[in-house]
């Protein structure tokens, strides 16, 4: 057989492409459930770690089951809020996944954002001592790729109880440091309001002054990522501000 003829080459490549595509499609479809479960677990774990819970996950024999159980135990309520701060029906968890956060971020990124379309997830966590903290996701663009995270506020809707940040492709050792507990731990105890105006949390290059209420240290060498994170937090807290104000007034 002449393996160099045009017909043979074309038939050969066609058959190859069909077989390869079939194998890959089959594997991808049959594993996608398991992959989605891992993504869900990661999101649940990040939400839990923003309220300083779920640390035992990496030692647990069945991580997915452990995280889901802890999540269901502590996250007692979740709902969506719109840009006016009213609660609306919907699946908060799927919007708290990175893809969900990105969809909301994309709405606001447009030149004339349609604010009425915005739906923001909120999670309510009941701690062991019965006190409640609420968890607010944030999302933004870092130096290289998306950065996102979950910030939890105490029931005065002002003091930060904990925070977790994640990233997709920041430089290891520099921007990637935002994902470390050492960095996110600095947020604990900071307040986002100054009187009645929202000031969020700012990162300070070269070290924040001791005991400052709104400032934390930037990552040395990772200033761009730190700034991007600061903007993302401020922006998302502004989206949530009507809701926060409403909740404060009700207290």
């Amino acid at each position: 057989m002449n393996t160099n003829s045009n017909t043979y080459t074309i038939i050969y490549s066609t058959i190859m492409v069909v077989i390869v595509a079939a194998v890959l499609a089959y594997v991808s479809v049959s594993l996608s459930g398991k992959q989605q479960a891992n993504v869900n677990t990661e999101t649940r774990q990040s939400i839990l770690s923003s309220v300083n819970l779920g640390q035992g996950a990496d030692e647990a024999s069945d991580k997915n089951a452990y995280v889901e159980q802890e999540f269901n135990k502590y996250i007692t309520d979740s709902y969506l809020v719109d840009a006016q701060g009213n609660k609306v029906e919907g699946d908060a968890f799927s919007l708290a996944l990175t893809a969900g956060l990105k969809s909301q971020y994309d709405i606001m990124k447009q030149a004339n954002p349609d604010v009425s379309k915005l739906t923001l997830p909120v999670f309510v966590c009941t701690l062991d001592d019965g006190s409640k903290v609420e968890i607010f996701p944030i999302y933004g663009a870092g130096l290289w790729g998306p950065i996102w995270g979950y910030v939890s506020l105490k029931d005065d809707y002002n003091t930060i109880y904990g925070a977790t940040f994640l990233h997709k492709g920041e430089t290891p050792g520099l921007g990637a440091e935002i994902a470390t507990p050492m960095f996110s731990g600095q947020f604990i105890g900071k307040s986002i309001f100054d009187g009645s105006s929202l000031v969020s949390v700012t990162v300070v290059k070269g070290g924040a002054p001791e005991g400052s209420a709104h400032e934390i240290d930037a990552i040395s060498g990772g200033t761009i990522t730190s700034r991007a994170l600061e903007n993302a937090i401020r922006q998302w807290l502004e989206y949530y501000e009507p809701y926060l104000e409403k909740q404060k007034a009700e207290r």
């Binding site: 594997v27 991808s28 398991k34 992959q35 891992n38 990661e42």
Partner: peptide
């Protein structure tokens, strides 16, 4: 083909 198989399995079993 084999690399994608590996990638898919890692995402499912060693995330």
């Amino acid at each position: 083909l084999f690399v994608i198989l590996i990638d898919q399995f890692l995402k499912a079993y060693a995330y």
